[in-house]
Write a protein that binds this DNA or RNA. Structure first.
Lengths: 88, 88
DNA sequence: GCCCAATGTAATATATATTTGACACTAAGT
DNA sequence: ACTTAGTGTCAAATATATATTACATTGGGC
């Protein structure tokens, strides 16, 4: 499919613990997929649909770029705000 | 698959014109897919794989969130830097 | 008016993501 | 020692994304 299939990494597992301490099943339910799908993604067996990626980002209340990222990332600006945001 | 399948919109077409004025075929080549895949995405017939989404973002040199976004977007912070970036 | 490039569409085929169900392993609680 | 929740894994089935080929349409340049 894609030129040279980017290898995309993610910190779903990390976020799952750090952020809200939830089980795979809980996360699966939250984003509406099966637990095995979560496993597959955490283990990086395949990358999810854009849809699911968004759902996960949503679940963690993070921009998608903070959940999924390219390994040798050079071009995509990481979403690190340079200033403290006011509201959030 | 997903809870209530988010409907994700994109401005691939817009960017394709505005940004670098390229044809569907050219873009397709650039990101390594067939032209019909580009058509399908522009027409929003299905949302791409995360991989392709990244490739497109890459092609346009934009963060993924500026290429794909949710319609009734409330939770995902849009990537609008609050300050002028230095380098780029 | 003719040509050609760019675009839209449709059918069929293949690849990949996701589901379902089942089972093994481990750590923690009792 | 027994149970149970959380996790990893596998195989087979289904859904969805993508490729391929082929054809129709439209707009611009000649």
């Amino acid at each position: 499919m894609a030129k040279t299939k980017l290898d995309i990494d993610n910190n779903v597992r990390k976020l799952r613990f750090e952020q809200q301490e939830m089980t795979q099943q809980a996360l699966a339910d939250k984003v509406g997929v099966s637990r095995q799908t979560i496993v597959a993604i955490e283990k990086n067996r395949y990358s999810p649909s854009l849809d699911l990626a968004f759902q996960l980002a949503l679940a963690f209340q993070k921009p998608i770029t903070q959940v999924f990222f390219m390994k040798a990332d050079k071009l995509t600006p990481p979403h690190k705000p340079r200033v403290k945001l006011k509201g959030l």
